[in-house]
Design a protein around this nucleic acid. Structure first.
Lengths: 183, 183
DNA sequence: GCGGTTTCGCTACGAATAGTATCGATACCG
DNA sequence: CGGTATCGATACTATTCGTAGCGAAACCGC
């Protein structure tokens, strides 16, 4: 199998995790615009050219960073109400992490007028959650996309306006509202 | 009254409306990042320096543009359900207008790490709606802010992910859900 | 018409940033 | 040791935000 043989030449150094961490940290400290690729590279301890060898643009780097942060969602599948609550708390916890919301806003801004980046955003970030939620909640696609808009949109808007995560009582209100809506 | 006397010197040319129109048009065509102040000025037919004499930064210009677009909300006050529906349809219609959602995303991105801009955003854009909704719907502040997050966040997320406005049936579903939530 | 005051258009400029090109050095394989 | 692909470093172009300076223009009161 050709895919299992190591390609010739010097192997890539495994610094992706460090780059992602430095990216979120820098965005958290300076905001998306001033989180330059130069600074992220310096914070990681590698050269800027190394970053551009792996990700074609700053937007693609940050998107990959978000995909890495949002891993698989741990749904129990015991009941629809429980999965709705789990999914919303999962999203609220991750969006509250330093830099994540700012990264989202920046990628959204970049994705306008960059169809390739929007494609990556939809395919790599939204589609996996759409699929698992359609199966787990037993709802049609349009319904699940509607729910994703509400949950992610609401949490991001709160972060964008106030700069702080949504308080727990409001997250619980969001859960109750959507449980009723989907019941 | 000193405020009613015209100040000495050459009066400002009244081009604010044209600048706002050119701003949204340019953002719609090129996206927030590539909608440079140079291009907006050229599209208006004035000098870039004239824009910077009126708004201190690109973010402040776009925020003023959004404040101008989102005028007073025409609530009837006949019933809470009716006002909820009117407010949501009002927001959906404006966010669907060309360039508005991209302008929002760009301002959010800029506002992170620019507390002054965030202050303008909250004071000039959110507060008027918060006040009128608190009075019209008869709900406490936290509740109204929660609703604003849901409505604006959901509509913006849909625009950011798909690039297209939310379809009418989903807007109606949003209305129904919030009417039930606030009933 | 004239002086005073303020804005306007224009040009030039400095600083910051995205992304590219190049080149010698380095790491791994057989 | 030779082959190959990556790494670090430097330099570079193009773009953009925001500012400075200057002469011309518009409006006021006299």
């Amino acid at each position: 199998m050709a895919s299992s043989t190591r390609p010739p030449g010097r192997p890539r150094s495994s610094v992706d995790a460090e780059v992602f961490a430095a990216t979120l940290r820098t965005i958290h400290e300076l905001g998306y615009t001033r989180a330059t690729v130069d600074r992220i590279a310096a914070a990681t301890g590698i050269a800027k050219t190394t970053i551009y060898r792996r990700w074609p643009s700053k937007g693609a780097l940050v998107t990959a960073c978000l995909v890495d942060t949002f891993g698989p969602m741990p749904l129990t599948g015991r009941s629809r109400d429980e999965d709705v609550a789990t999914a919303i708390r999962y999203g609220a916890r991750l969006i509250a992490e330093p830099g994540v919301a700012a990264a989202f806003a920046g990628v959204f801004t970049d994705a306008i007028g960059d169809p390739g980046l929007r494609e990556i955003l939809v395919t790599q970030l939204q589609d996996p959650y759409r699929q698992v939620l359609m199966e787990s909640l037993g709802l049609p696609e349009q319904r699940v996309l509607f729910v994703i808009d509400i949950v992610i949109g609401t949490l991001l808007h709160r972060m964008g306006i106030t700069g702080k995560p949504m308080v727990e009582s409001d997250v619980e209100a969001l859960i109750t509202m959507l449980q009723r809506e989907l019941g």
